[in-house]
Design a binder for these strands. Structure first.
Lengths: 338, 338
DNA sequence: ATGAAAGCGCTAACAG
DNA sequence: CTGTTAGCGCTTTCAT
């Protein structure tokens, strides 16, 4: 922000009118004569006048900025959500600030404080894997700042959210394998403090139950990335405890499992079926292509932003709490075909 | 930005002191008595006072915000760059606003105007594929607003940049295939208005030349995504014009080519070697794993931000123009092994 | 050690 | 139709 930026004052001075006149002319206010408007607009564009959004924000006590706190944008799902957020926000004349928590609690906290200091008009949050203390989010609600969660919610915080039916989708994914005759279906789970991980595990368990399969604790491991999946599979192999199906909490974990199985001579899906979650760019690219659950990230971004904008524009605060549940779509590909 | 936010005035009123005293106390100014400081800080944290960054920006004429315009964050390379940017920026006490151009010129333009209106302290840009007119970027330089390009520069614009040696890396990639006996090496190129695409093609041509291979125009096609690669390969097959190597301008194009070849009974790398560019998350996951050029996105983000911060902090404007060229690393994997 | 006042860029009553 | 004034939240001379 170099000092040489043109202001309304500069234009006013050059034209010999008052700043207010310039301000009004620029806004197309009906009181201002056509002639003045023409002059002002001409000079403004000649000087490349750029309205100072900061001054406007201070004046209007609104920034027309939406803050987003997202775990990691590398993930296709989160990128898609952002696209949805941006599309809706821009159409409504709002800007978007994206902050990554990198799955860390301290970063999430400092991101939030930044957004608060920046006086964003509303906040969209998907909580980090590390977050177990929700004080900071309670605070936002208490201050009546519009807040909507997407995908990963903070249990107990009274705010709107849009999530997918993790329980249902996990159930579907697991049931699909059970229905094709798999009996020893493993689950690679995420950290259980995250509602999504918890619900996916519950859906998995329910599907087993409905398929008259007793859950085998040795087949339920905490593994939510490539490397942990690799280790888990190697452990399965060493102990001779090979499953005939794996339902993983996300795609990259599923791929880690699949690759490791293949490297060790197991065939996918013949020996072991594999299903992931959160249909990303990877799914269609692996060999065989990975079955997964399409989480509809783009749509989620759209809905979350629409809910947030409603809160912001109707000045409703967080009173109108609402939860939207999207249904994920199980997409069956080669990795789990019979 | 709901109205109920606590301000310095509120604290001043409750304590029966002046706003200036509160301001000074909060800053730890030596003139203020310890007792007052204690009281102020206590009340501030009790009321959860959050300094208003907007007011500060207006006052100080600096925002401590870095604006980033990036084509698409879905790409692993760009996500990595962002991580690098954020790490350096946060350490220096700067915030980051990320805008996606979605490879569109109009979005890039409006992103830039937004950042300018927001009075960011500096701007990092990687130009969109569509951008052929660089007026808007010239304007930034003319206004002496700190600007650094990364990866995709705007030719003719007098600003610092950090790029990778596309020519060299493309040369390496092509030479590697030629050295292993490939004679009919195709190139799937990007739009030639982008410097990176242009340079990669030049590097490819140079490698052919140095290998005594006459470039075959029918083997040089413009294809820079999965679908275009698929079409191009199908066209090769229909015309019986099958290459024995493909160097693609990016990974997803390489994968599109590889998948289509495999689907049609060609073996990779035995019949056709394939090398991509911009080593992403995909590379290690395909079958066979894809050879590619590691573009060092994270490092690029770090360097670009350091250069930008230097400009901002030294108030050097764009005088100290500097171009840093990173060397990409060719990573040879299964898709091009002999 | 603290307060009063001005000003960052802009808008919006209120006057004329 | 246009100008004057006050004020958004904060800092910072200049007084006291």
């Amino acid at each position: 922000m170099k000092g040489n930026q043109v202001t309304i004052k500069d234009i006013a001075k050059q034209l010999g009118v008052s700043p207010s006149t310039v301000s009004r002319a620029l806004q197309g206010h009906p009181d201002i004569s056509e002639e003045t408007k023409r002059q002002v607009n001409e000079l403004a564009s000649k000087l490349k006048y750029q309205p100072n959004a900061i001054a406007l924000s201070l004046k209007h006590k609104r920034t027309r900025i939406i803050g987003v706190i997202i775990p990691e944008i590398v993930h296709f799902f989160f990128s898609s959500v952002i696209s949805g957020i941006e599309d809706v926000a821009y159409d409504a004349g709002f800007n978007v600030i994206i902050c990554q928590s990198n799955e860390r609690f301290d970063r999430e906290l400092s991101n939030l404080n930044t957004l608060l200091a920046q006086r964003v008009d509303g906040i969209l949050v998907s909580v980090s894997k590390e977050t177990t203390d929700f004080q900071h989010l309670h605070r936002v609600v208490a201050q009546n700042i519009p807040l909507v969660f997407f995908d990963r919610i903070a249990p107990g915080v009274q705010a709107s959210s849009v999530i997918i039916d993790d329980h249902y989708s996990a159930y579907q994914a697991t049931k699909h394998m059970a229905d094709s005759g798999r009996k020893r279906i493993a689950h690679f789970a995420g950290p259980q403090n995250l509602s999504i991980s918890h619900n996916r595990k519950e859906g998995y368990l329910k599907a087993l139950q409905d398929s008259q399969i007793d859950p085998d604790p040795s087949l339920i491991v905490e593994a939510d990335n490539f490397e942990k999946a690799r280790m888990a599979v190697i452990n399965f192999i060493h102990t001779g405890n090979i499953p005939d199906g794996i339902f993983a909490v996300n795609d990259i974990t599923a791929i880690g499992a699949m690759k490791t199985l293949q490297k060790n001579g197991y065939r996918v899906p013949e020996d072991v079926a594999v299903v992931g979650f959160s249909d990303g760019r990877f799914s269609a690219i692996t060999e065989p292509p990975l079955s997964s659950v399409d989480q509809h990230g783009y749509e989620m971004g759209i809905i979350a932003t629409e809910m947030l904008l409603k809160q912001i524009l109707e000045d409703a605060g967080n009173n109108s709490m609402e939860t939207r549940v999207l249904r994920g779509d199980l997409i069956i590909r080669g990795s789990s075909k019979i």
